[in-house]
Design a protein around this nucleic acid. Structure first.
Lengths: 242, 242
DNA sequence: ATTTCATTGTAAACGCTGTGTAAAGTAACG
DNA sequence: CGTTACTTTACACAGCGTTTACAATGAAAT
């Protein structure tokens, strides 16, 4: 049984992005684009976690959070806030938020926070969590430990810089599947990041150099005109569909 | 139970093309060639998705989209826009569009987007399964994995270039059915692409060379004066009980 | 049959676009 | 300040798509 999330976010683009990615993760997502109605839903239905934008029409995020806690509703809350709003964060946490993310943020960062908060709150409950974002990923000779920021290739640790790590992590979560530069941008750099088109390429390039210790078993393929995919070669065996 | 689509598009050629192909896909398609009437239909009847051209007589796409969302109608919308109109896209997405396509676009691209949006909205979870994926096409010894950009022929991977891949994919979506060069042009190159008449032929030719590893089970037939069709021969040498 | 014309097959050439990557430039961090 | 990480820029190159030209095939007409 999947966990239920409520996303209170008015900007459609962001709301959709969040809804999409959280759903992909296996959560059951409800969205609300208005403060008042969002608050009402949060009161009426039981959610496992609420993602709450602080800037909202109708009723702002602080009010919602305050009133919820006032009513004794302890549903975990992650607040979304603008970059340079340290006070907002502090106030939000004082009102009982469980975590916060500043915009712009990467999708993978959000997923990690959501998973972390859920785990923290419900005790360790691995089975209930979907593809827990931060459990280890093992693909042939490649092992990724998100919570440790560590990658093993054939048993030996390789040191990746943060952005390289995240790119690899996102690729590794859908092995074999082509991800566009846009996908990777959204996941690693944030949904509204506006940057050069080649940034992803450069990171993939340096990632390749560090992965080529095991070129047979792990490598990143380019699909011209589309994007990149992580290719895993387990053992020397043939294809064994199952 | 098929899904209901509304296409709001004034250019007759394009409207017909969209209507035809979407109907072929199994959708129930309604078209409207005017902004005002299109909007009214969208308000009155429940649709699963709306394909909306932004340039329309009567009432432009932005107005329609804005008013729909204003009325609380959350039907998913894919907007059609000209190539060099980045702002239009941004504005459209802000108004609550779910996706966009820039003209010219290939029919297959549109079909893919429609399917994606519908799936996303209906909350079906997409799994990154290693070998099995619901979007995979299996025809005898031919297996196509669109999201991996990979084609297996008798279990071994064959490398196709992007255009070859798309041509094969489109042929494979209607195995045994003759598709005209025009069909393929529309699907792969875009509905208003203006190019030489022989381009399709050349791609089919090179595709044949790569497919002839299994000439018995998979090949492309020419129908003189008409077009091409993909022929699949199931049966021999494999576990086909009947 | 033989000729004639239209259609299709395909190799080769050309130009363009996307990609790899080094290196310079910029920001963050201590 | 010095170091590290990240981004942008620039340039070279490889791959791809399209066109072209000519060969091969098939159909229709005589």
């Amino acid at each position: 049984m999947s966990q239920r999330l409520l996303v209170i976010e008015d900007e459609p683009t962001l709301a959709r992005l969040l809804s999409y990615n959280l759903t992909q993760e296996g959560y059951e997502v409800t969205t609300s684009d208005h403060g008042t109605t969002g608050f009402e839903r949060a009161v009426q239905e039981p959610f496992d976690l609420i993602v709450l934008d602080l800037m909202l029409p109708g009723m702002n995020g602080f009010d919602i959070l305050g009133k919820l806690r006032g009513k004794g509703i302890a549903t975990p809350v992650i607040i979304l806030t603008a970059k340079n709003a340290e006070e907002e964060v502090v106030q939000g946490l004082k009102l009982g938020a469980d975590d916060y993310i500043t915009k712009p943020f990467g999708v993978s960062e959000l997923l990690a926070r959501v998973a972390t908060v859920l785990r923290r709150v419900s005790g360790v409950k691995e089975e209930a969590a979907p593809q827990t974002s931060d459990s280890a990923i093992r693909l042939g000779k490649l092992e990724i430990f998100p919570e440790k920021y560590e990658v093993l290739l054939g048993g030996t640790s390789i040191s990746l810089r943060p952005k390289e790590f995240e790119v690899l992590l996102y690729l590794a979560r859908k092995p074999g599947v082509v991800l566009t530069r846009d996908d990777l941008m959204n996941a690693v750099w944030g949904f509204d990041y506006i940057g050069g088109q080649r940034t992803v390429d450069v990171h993939v390039s340096s990632l390749r150099k560090k992965l080529e210790l095991e070129p047979e078993s792990v490598h990143i393929d380019s699909i011209r005109g589309v994007g990149y995919k992580l290719v895993i070669n387990k053992g020397s065996a043939h294809h064994q569909p199952q």
